[in-house]
Structure formats: structure tokens, C-alpha cells
């Protein structure tokens, strides 16, 4: 049963990811990305990571993709031919990634499903994520927030027309 779900989610993720780059109309691309985010969230649910699934939808589908759509609609990009210029670079990158995937798959062979933290299944994974994030992974967490802060300041500087005025 869980294999069936995995195959469904994985299949849709692959198909929609290809559509994101293959479709000519940017709005349709964004829509396939939306479907992909949902299926990634579904994959998390099958792994009993409900918190991650909800956050995935709230952050990516609810905020980031809406911003993408906003920009696409604001610029009113109808059709775009720019993908053809990048074909050689894309082919090269694709080849590298494919090699990586083949290598990883051949090395790992068959493993059982990766086990999550045992505590996560008992206490409900929201509590566990909170505890782990603020104890074991406190430093990486703080570094990540610092990086985001830098990005925010950068965006404000870029958006400000005249810095001397303030």
C-alpha cells in the first residue's frame, strides 16, 4: 500500500517537475510547480512528517509560489524562448546530476526505509522538531537565520532608491 502511494507521488513529482521547465507559458509552469509541492507534501505525510508537510505547503505553495505568480502576471510574460540558449549548459548539468543519481543508487542498492528519530513517533513530531532544533541543531539554526537576515537587509538596500536620504 505504501509503495503504491510512493510510486504515485514520485511519478507525479517527476512528471510535474519536467512540465515546469518544459511548458512555454510561465503561468502553467507555476501551476505544475504547485502540483509538485503538493505531492512532495504528500510524500512527507507518508513518512509521518506531518509538520514538515504542512510547512512545505504554507511556505512554498502559500507564499513563495504566489510571489512567483505575482511577478509573472505583473510582467505579463506570455511566451518565452529563452530556454533554448541554455540548452548546452543544461545538458551538461543534467549529465552530471544523472551520473550522481546513478552512482548513489548503485552504491546504496536496497536499503530499508530511513528511520526517523524514534522520539518523533511518540511525542508528535512538532514537539520533537522544536526540541531538536533548539538544542542539538541550535548553531546551524542560528546561522541559517543570520543568513536570512543578511538577505533581508540586502533586499532592503536594493529596493531603496536613495540611501543617503534616510
Amino acid at each position: 500500500m505504501s509503495h503504491l502511494f510512493f510510486l504515485y507521488f514520485a511519478g507525479v513529482i517527476v512528471a510535474t517537475s519536467i512540465l515546469v521547465v518544459a511548458l512555454r507559458n510561465p503561468v502553467y509552469s507555476a501551476l505544475s510547480l504547485l502540483i509538485m509541492f503538493f505531492h512532495v507534501a504528500g510524500l512527507y505525510v507518508t513518512l509521518h512528517a506531518e509538520f514538515l508537510a504542512a510547512v512545505q505547503i504554507i511556505v512554498y505553495a502559500g507564499a513563495i509560489l504566489v510571489l512567483y505568480l505575482f511577478v509573472v502576471m505583473l510582467l505579463n510574460v506570455k511566451r518565452d524562448e529563452r530556454y533554448h540558449v541554455q540548452a548546452p549548459a543544461a545538458a551538461f548539468l543534467g549529465l552530471v546530476l544523472l551520473t550522481e543519481v546513478v552512482l548513489l543508487v548503485s552504491q546504496r542498492a536496497y536499503q530499508t526505509a530511513p528511520a526517523g528519530l524514534p522520539a518523533a513517533d511518540q511525542a508528535g513530531n512538532t514537539e520533537t522538531i522544536g526540541e531538536v532544533l533548539y538544542s542539538t541543531y541550535l548553531f546551524p539554526f542560528e546561522v541559517a537565520s543570520l543568513i536570512l537576515l543578511v538577505a533581508m537587509i540586502g533586499a532592503i538596500i536594493l529596493a531603496k532608491k536613495n540611501i543617503d536620504e534616510c
Partner: peptide, 20 residues
């Protein structure tokens, strides 16, 4: 156990109907 997040996630999807 993620009840309120579930609602937040789906209300944010409602915006797509309006935008599209």
C-alpha cells in the same frame, strides 16, 4: 496533531483561485 497548520496551509491555497 497539526490541525491549525492544516487550515493555514489550505487557506493559503484559496488565493490561487482568485489570482488565476
Amino acid at each position: 496533531n497539526i490541525g491549525i497548520l492544516y487550515i493555514l496551509a489550505f487557506t493559503s491555497i484559496g488565493a490561487y483561485g482568485i489570482i488565476l
